[in-house]
């Protein structure tokens, strides 16, 4: 009897692990965007930054043979891309929605160009963390300690962001800037500089999320390989009501749906594959509808300055 239970549990374990790996790119991208939005900046370019991260990460790994260097390159590339957005919206006061779209279009084109020579190439993937004893604990060991290091980093970054926002002084300042840029400026905080930092962090995280996809999750480069994950990350931030804890929950939920539909396709349930593939996108819409119904609550939770340009009068 116990053996039977154990066996059935073990068949479930790999999906849970893959669920975490499917969730990790979303965890990175959504955490970055959350911090960015908390400072009052809406960057719709997450998809583009993820693609840029994915392609530069992959190319670096392919050239140097080091996946770790690849991840570093992915993060830096994502951040540089976000700086274009920051200069346009924060220094030149362009419309944030339009500029974010431009960043996504730019990132799609740039990544396709850079990745042109890398389509179909493979690289060595980063191994999982094997902790002596801990990873050998049956079931739980594989469940909790058998992932690649980035999964833990993602969770760490997320928890760290939660602590930063609610318990650190600079986190408080960041929230203040997102709540009232005019007041923060009047008190004497450098609103634009703080937003630059927040946008860069968003880019860094989106790049890392993209790099995770091309270096660890698949690992290969294909045009448009993010397949809307950047947009789902944006939806997750709304879903989470701008609270880091809920981002994790949402990311795992979406990771789960992604894996579940893949498994269901493999199992051949008779439902056309295309319809199964639609599930994550339809789930995003459903979640958005459920969470947005109370308009006043959304407006209470959303940073009051989200998306508004700020010009310091001197």
């Amino acid at each position: 009897m116990t053996e039977l239970i154990l066996a059935s549990v073990l068949t479930v374990v790999p999906p849970i692990m893959t669920m975490m790996t499917a969730a990790t790119p979303l965890v990175f991208a959504a955490t970055g965007e959350l911090i960015c939005e908390k400072s009052g900046v809406l960057n719709l370019g997450v998809e583009g930054m993820m693609l840029i991260g994915a392609v530069f990460g992959f190319a670096t790994a392919a050239v140097t043979g080091s996946a770790s260097l690849g991840l570093l390159a992915a993060a830096v590339a994502g951040m540089l891309a976000s700086l274009i957005f920051a200069v346009l919206t924060l220094t030149l006061l362009s419309n944030q929605v339009a500029t974010g779209l431009a960043l996504t279009i730019f990132g799609t084109g740039l990544s396709a160009l850079v990745g042109f020579d890398y389509v179909g190439e493979t690289i060595e993937r980063i191994g999982t963390v094997h902790l002596p004893f801990l990873s050998d604990i049956p079931v739980i060991g594989r469940l909790v300690f058998g992932h690649d290091p980035l999964v833990y980093l993602g969770i760490l970054v997320l928890l760290g962001s939660g602590w930063f926002l609610n318990h650190s002084r600079w986190g408080m300042v960041l929230r203040a800037v997102g709540d009232s840029d005019v007041s923060a400026h009047a008190i004497g905080y450098p609103v634009v500089a703080i937003r630059f930092a927040a946008v860069s962090f968003g880019g860094l995280m989106a790049g890392l999320g993209g790099g995770y996809l091309s270096l660890i999750y698949t690992p290969l480069w294909a045009e448009n390989m993010t397949a809307g994950r950047g947009w789902i990350a944006l939806a997750l931030v709304v879903f989470a009501s701008w609270r880091p804890g809920r981002v994790l929950f949402g990311a795992i939920l979406f990771g789960g749906i992604t894996i579940a539909q893949l498994n269901a396709q493999a199992a051949g349930l008779g439902i056309p594959a295309a319809f199964m593939s639609m599930l994550p996108y339809i789930a995003t819409i459903v979640v958005l509808v459920l969470i947005s119904r109370d308009a006043i609550r959304i407006r209470l939770n959303a940073p009051a300055c989200l998306g508004k340009p700020f010009r310091a009068e001197r």
């Binding site: 709540d179 009232s180 007041s183």
Partner: peptide, 9 residues
């Protein structure tokens, strides 16, 4: 005159 306060805090 226009307070420099943060409403959500």
């Amino acid at each position: 005159q226009h307070f420099s306060l943060f409403e959500a805090m």
